Computed example of a mutant assay.
Amino acid sequence: MIPTPTSSQANRILVLGIGNILWADEGFGVRAVEEFHRRYAVPDNVTILDGGTQGLYLVNYLEDADRLIVFDAIDYGLEPGQLKLVRDDEVPRFTGAKKMSLHQTGFQEVISAVDLLGRCPRHLVLIGCQPLDLEDWGGPLTKPVCDQIAPALELGCEILAEWGVEVMPRTAPLAESERLLANDIDHQHYEMRGRPA
């Protein structure tokens, strides 16, 4: 178990969702972090970020983080919708393995770049979900993957609690200006109202 940091220790935390919402289950990480932001309020030392497919543009965010949680769709070869949590030194072991997602190489390059700069987060947790379909252009998350958003968020909350972070359920809906994704690409507008034109 990771010890709870004291208030005098640096504890900047990044909760990151990566993926591409245009390719069905590839959007799992983005939709998970979007839902996390919709459900929970976090302290000022926690940043919630839709990383999309930004690749090396994420370096600055990782440099500023002491601890990192990543939500992503990853091909582990498991049953569709199955979650797998990987921590710390276990994460880089996937480098050079079969391609796990459309943007995997880009994110591994981000981790490598931050590591070379000596600024890699001290603790890294990857919460991955086995996709069913990564080739449905414009399609929504499949049901087995969509059904794992809530359990994935529970895992994220457990990790944050281990790190001494109190996550509070929101008592009021977010205003439109407070949403993580806007311009009708949020989950409700983009996926729940049917396939985009």
Score class of each variant (00 low, 15 high):
Leu124Met: 13
Pro43Met: 13
Asp50Thr: 13
Cys129Glu: 01
Asp66Met: 03
Glu166Cys: 05
Phe71Pro: 06
Gly77Thr: 11
Trp163Phe: 06
Val46Lys: 03
Ala10Gln: 12
Val86Gly: 00
Val59Glu: 03
Gln188Arg: 14
Val15Leu: 03
Asp136Cys: 11
Asp133Tyr: 11
Glu158Pro: 02
Thr47Val: 14
Trp23His: 06
Val70Trp: 03
Lys98Gly: 09
Glu154Tyr: 05
Tyr40Pro: 11
Asp88Met: 08
Met100His: 04
Pro173Cys: 11
Ala24Asn: 04
Pro196Phe: 15
Glu90Trp: 11
Pro92Arg: 03
Asp186Met: 00
Phe36Thr: 03
Asp25Met: 04
Glu109Ala: 05
Met100Lys: 00
Leu132Thr: 14
Met100Arg: 02
Leu180Arg: 07
Gly81Ser: 04
Leu56Phe: 00
Glu154Arg: 06
Gln9Glu: 14
Pro151Gly: 09
Ala10Cys: 14
Thr53Asn: 01
Cys157Ile: 15
Ala150Glu: 00
Thr4Cys: 10
Pro173Phe: 11
Ala24Gln: 05
Asp25Gln: 08
Tyr57Val: 10
Glu178Ala: 05
Glu154His: 12
Asp186Leu: 02
Val70Ser: 07
Gly138Asp: 01
Asp147Pro: 13
Asp64Arg: 14
Gln188Pro: 04
Gly194Thr: 04
Ile18Tyr: 12
Leu134Val: 15
Glu154Gly: 02
Leu62Tyr: 04
Glu109Val: 00
Val42Met: 05
Pro3Ser: 12
Phe28Trp: 03
Gln108Ser: 06
Leu14Met: 10
Leu58Gln: 02
Tyr190Gln: 01
Asp136Glu: 10
Lys143Met: 01
Glu135Ile: 01
Asp89Ser: 14
Asn60Ile: 09
Leu124Ala: 06
Leu132Glu: 07
Pro5Leu: 00
Gly27Val: 05
Cys146Asn: 13
Arg193Cys: 02
Gln188Leu: 13
Thr171Trp: 06
Ile111Trp: 03
Gln148His: 07
Phe71Ala: 07
Gly164Arg: 05
Leu124Phe: 14
Cys157Lys: 04
Val86Ile: 14
Glu79Ser: 11
Gly164Ser: 10
Asp186Ser: 08
Ala150Gly: 10
Asn20Met: 04
Arg119Cys: 09
Leu155Ile: 15
Ala172Tyr: 10
Asp25Phe: 01
Leu181Ser: 09
His103Asp: 00
Arg39Leu: 15
Asn60Gly: 15
Arg12Trp: 08
Asp72Pro: 02
Ala32Gln: 02
His187Ala: 07
Ser177Ile: 13
Val46Ser: 00
Ala41Arg: 01
Asn20Ile: 00
Asp133Pro: 09
Glu191Leu: 01
Thr95Met: 10
Leu134Gln: 01
Leu56Cys: 00
Val70Asn: 04
Asp44Glu: 15
Pro80Ile: 08
Ala97Met: 13
